[in-house]
């Protein structure tokens, strides 16, 4: 569990994070969204104790970062995959981290295996592609087998296989009761991964809620209906107070849900060929919520 309470961080005269409070719960993947410059990275650095907040504090499983005796056992973070000495091998990089976390040496081979870097474990990290560096960063976050995981743009540089792999990894970690906080700009990806969302803009909290709720509150949900008896169904729908729009070969109904439409069709003897609820996309919802919080918009 991560609890941020009233975080504020200024760099000179810019306020990067402004009285920000949020909670990331165990057992779910929490997506951390916001435009560039919204303060996501700063907030993540504050959680990991890398930057000092001007006011407010962060609790990780109930304790402040500075109070953790073996922090890698509690929280693992991947903020920047390039934070590796280019001449040090992947194995050596993990070896010192494992030592710092008081984990047995065998843990290094375990995490190397887990991220698929066993074959290149003895190559200097400077020779790695961005995707491989990303995997090494993930291995480093996992080395202490922590209960809280923090990933900043983890799919950066990964190919489709890598992207599917990390999505599954985060899912598994959350299903095992861990807290997973992941920031990303890829909303279609987040819609598949995140159970809950924390959305910030200009350093402030815009929303914290389940992903489904975030989408349904900001977008219109409708039902796409296909039938041979258009007239009959439309009359019944309008009579019930629904709004009906025409699309090529289909009706788009708002104001009634799919189950209500299905019951209505059955009652009027209408044969349905399709009855698909349509939800808005996370992208639509996000743009609706952050519309005025984006820092630099093109003119």
């Amino acid at each position: 569990m991560i609890e941020a309470v009233g975080l504020t961080k200024r760099y000179g005269r810019t306020v990067a994070v402004d009285d920000l409070s949020f909670t990331a719960r165990p057992g779910v993947v929490t997506g951390f969204l916001g435009p560039n410059g919204a303060g996501k990275s700063t907030a993540m650095r504050l959680v990991l104790g890398l930057d000092r907040s001007d006011t407010g504090f962060v609790l990780i499983d109930g304790r402040r970062f500075g109070e953790l005796r073996r922090p890698l056992r509690v929280i693992g973070g991947l903020l920047d995959a390039t934070w590796v000495h280019p001449h040090r091998t992947a194995r050596d990089h993990l070896r010192w981290l494992a030592r710092a976390a008081d984990m047995p040496r065998t843990r290094v081979d375990e995490v190397l295996d887990l991220v698929g870097l066993t074959k290149v474990a003895r190559s200097p990290a400077g020779d790695f592609s961005l995707g491989m560096a990303q995997r090494l960063g993930i291995a480093a976050a996992l080395v202490g087998d922590p209960s809280v995981l923090l990933f900043d743009e983890p799919v950066n540089g990964l190919d489709p296989q890598g992207i599917a792999w990390i999505r599954k990894l985060m899912r598994t970690m959350a299903d095992n009761g861990r807290t997973v906080l992941v920031s990303s700009h890829l909303l279609a990806e987040m819609a598949q991964t995140a159970d809950e969302l924390i959305v910030i803009g200009r350093g402030r909290l815009i929303a914290q809620c389940p992903t489904a709720q975030f989408i349904s509150e900001a977008t219109e949900s409708s039902v796409r209906v296909r039938t041979a008896q258009v007239e009959r169904l439309q009359t019944a729908l309008v009579h019930k107070g629904a709004t009906v729009r025409h699309e090529p070969g289909a009706l788009v109904v708002t104001g009634l849900d799919a189950a209500q439409i299905g019951e209505l069709a059955a009652a009027h003897g209408v044969v349905l060929h399709e009855l698909s609820p349509r939800r808005g996309s996370l992208e639509e919802a996000y743009l609706h919520h952050t519309g005025d919080a984006a820092d630099h918009q093109a003119g």
Partner: peptide, 18 residues
């Protein structure tokens, strides 16, 4: 200084709270 240059100082401070 190389820890600062390559960013490993952040990994160090993540691993060692003090």
């Amino acid at each position: 200084t190389t820890e600062y240059r390559f960013g490993t100082i952040k990994a160090t401070f993540q691993a060692v709270p003090s």
